[in-house]
Amino acid sequence: MTTRGWVALSLAAAALVAAPFVVDRYLLSILLLCLIGAYLGQAWNILMGFCGLLSLGHALYLGLGAYTGAILFVKFGVGPWLGVFAAMAVAVAAASALGWLGFRFRIEGVYFSLLTIAFAEVARIGFDNWSFAGGAAGFFLPVASEAQAQWFNLRGGPYFFYYLALALAAGALALSAFLRASKLGHAWLAVREDPAAARALGVNATRVRFFALFISSAMTAVGGVYLAFWSNNLFPAQIFDMSRSIDLILAPIVGGVGTLFGPIVGAFLLVPLGEALIDILRALGLNAPGAKALVYGALLMIIIAATPNGLWPWIARKLKLEGRGA
């Protein structure tokens, strides 16, 4: 990164730390969604952007993480700081099954992507029919008032959740940067670029793909636990839905797949865009159900057509934020 890049990053970080003292609650909740979007985008980006595996079913790990954390807390009294490890374990187990099927039987390219959708759908239908976890009617966490904030049980007010989201997003960025520079990261890039050449250079493609899948799914599950405790309710039709997987991957794609800052840029563009659309359409008197999603869909088509490779590489070039080869 260039000096300008470091300055920009520091300014952005300072602004995000200071935000709760400046902005109102509505804006803060939007920033929170941006941060979570950035966090989940980083998780997906490790798998796709670094290792070249296109998962279109990341809602699977999000949902498994959310349900595991919530069920352990409500039904077994296990707090989320402990439950999050169980959530990661469950997600990694599901990822292992997917990886085993995909890598062992050489299910590659578009077939792998469709397999990820199938796994998420199976989970959605399964949870829809699992009465212990509330079935289709949903699973609820007791809502705590802000006065009874218990940070150790992830019960707290908006500031608490905001800073937690900021920590997650910052942590994911740091982890991504670390991994990208590591031997494992280089092995991922090699496998992404050309698996046969990577193997000829001694890279165990199957093993490093599994690592990418494990790290990505575990990170996504952590995001799931966060969402469960933040929103207090879970519905299979929402958390496991295909549209959730799509939402999750839009930010890194629009921001720039395989880049460190792409997921962040994408999230900070798309989340406010979605919110602004509601206001704009309301102002225009277009508040029919579906109008927002229709315009959103059209905007997606325009953005993806206009910015191949995503926004970040373009921004970084224009503002001279990154050195060569970054």
Partner: peptide
Amino acid sequence: PQHEQFILLVGLALVLVNA
């Protein structure tokens, strides 16, 4: 790349279904 095709067609799907 495949993921960009995906976004294009998912965008189209959103337009169609909401229309």
